[in-house]
Design a protein around this nucleic acid. Structure first.
Lengths: 187, 187
DNA sequence: GACAAAATTTTACAATTGTTAAAAAATAGA
DNA sequence: TCTATTTTTTAACAATTGTAAAATTTTGTC
C-alpha cells in the first residue's frame, strides 16, 4: 500500500497517527469499467487509489463530461456526500483494473471530531485539492485549447498514455475533433 | 460586524469559540481601488469582508484576468501564502470602499494547532470553498458563454449591479464584446 | 492472421467567439 | 451644467472551435 501511505503522509500526518489510520482501511479491487460512484446517491466511502486510474463525470443533456481524472496517490470521494451529507453529483468510473483502500466516511469524521491531528490532516487535504483546482480553473480561464493540452502533457504524461483521447478531450473541455487537430499540429 | 460573524458561524463554529476568535479580529477600512494583495508576496493576513466587493486577478501577458469576485461574508486570503507558505499568485483589488476584519495567519494557524474545533472549522472553510469552485469549474467545462452569464445573473445579481461589466466578462472567461452581444440578445 | 468493434483522425461546413476600431452611453469632476 | 473620461455597445472581419459524417487506424477476439 505504498502509494496510499505516501499520499497520507504527504498531508502531514505523523507516523504515529498513520498507524492509527491504517487498520481502518480495507483493501478492495475492481475491474476496469466499474462504476464506483453514481450521481444522486449519498456515497458513504472514501477511497485511496493504490493502483489504477479513475474519471469523474457528469451529464450535459445525455453527453458525459469528465471533470476530473486521477491515478495513483489520489483520493476518491463525493464532495457533496462527504462534506455536506447531500446526494453527490459525481459519476466515478474506473478506467483500469484498480486496487483501492476504502474507509467509511463515519470513521473519518469520527477521527476529525476527536483527534486534532486528523482534523488538521483533513483540513490540509481539502486545502491541497482547493489550490490544485483553483490553478486549473485559472488556466482554463484564459488558455487556448492548445495551451490546455500542452499543460496536460506536461503535468500528466502518464495519464495521457493510459487514458483514451476522448476522455482527455472531454476533461479539457474541448471536442475530440479539436484535440485531434491540435495533436496533428504539434507533431 | 454582522456579516463577518454570520460567515464564521455558518462554518459550524460554536458561539463559545466565536467569542475566542472575535477579539483577535482587527477592523480595517480601505478606499476603492486599494490593492490588498499583490502576486509574488507571501501574504500574512486573512480578511473577512464585512462590507464591499473585491476581485482577484492575475496576468496573461499584460492583460488582467479575474478569477474570483466576492462581496460581503466572503473571505480574502492567498491560498499559496496561507496553505503552503509560498508567494501568492493573487492580486486582490477592492472594487468599493470596504470594511474588513483582519486576522494574521499565525493567529489562525495557532488556533488550528491547539483547538480541535477551530481545526475542523478551518477544514470546513476549505471544503466549502472547494465545493463551490468545483461546481464553477464543471459549469465552465460545458456551458456556452451565454449560459455562464445567465448562471451569473442568477447566482450573483447584486455583484452584477455593483461591478463594471468588463470585470464580469473577464471573470466569465469571455471578451467584453461577447458579453455585450449576449446582453443585447437577452433583452 | 482475419474479422469485428472501438478509437482516432480527417473533411467540410456552420456556429461561436475574439480582435480591432469606432460610436454611443454613462459617469465623474470642475 | 458642461466637459472630459470611462464604460459599454456596435460593426466588420478573422480565427477558433463544434458538429456530423466518412475514412483510417488501433485493439481485441477467435
Amino acid at each position: 500500500m505504498e502509494n496510499t501511505i505516501k499520499k497520507i503522509l504527504a498531508l502531514g500526518l505523523r507516523e504515529e497517527s498513520l498507524a492509527k489510520l491504517l487498520p481502518l482501511l480495507e483493501k478492495v479491487t475492481f475491474q476496469k469499467g466499474h462504476m464506483l460512484f453514481k450521481a444522486g446517491r449519498i456515497e458513504r466511502s472514501v477511497y485511496f487509489i493504490e493502483q489504477g486510474i479513475a474519471r469523474a463525470f457528469c451529464y450535459k443533456e445525455d453527453k458525459e463530461i469528465n471533470f476530473w481524472i486521477g491515478s495513483e496517490s489520489n483520493i476518491l470521494l463525493s464532495y457533496n456526500s462527504f462534506f455536506l451529507n447531500k446526494a453527490g453529483y459525481e459519476n466515478i468510473e474506473l478506467l483500469e483494473n484498480a486496487v483501492l483502500y476504502k474507509v467509511s466516511d463515519s470513521v473519518l469524521m469520527d477521527l476529525y471530531q476527536t483527534d486534532l491531528e486528523f482534523a488538521n490532516w483533513g483540513r490540509k487535504l481539502a486545502e491541497s485539492e482547493l489550490i490544485k483546482l483553483e490553478e486549473s480553473f485559472i488556466s482554463r480561464q484564459f488558455k487556448t485549447a492548445k495551451e490546455c493540452y500542452e499543460d496536460f502533457i506536461r503535468s500528466s504524461p502518464d495519464i495521457l498514455q493510459r487514458v483514451q483521447l476522448g476522455h482527455i478531450a472531454s476533461y479539457l473541455g474541448i471536442s475530440q475533433v479539436t484535440l485531434s487537430r491540435i495533436r496533428a499540429e504539434i507533431k
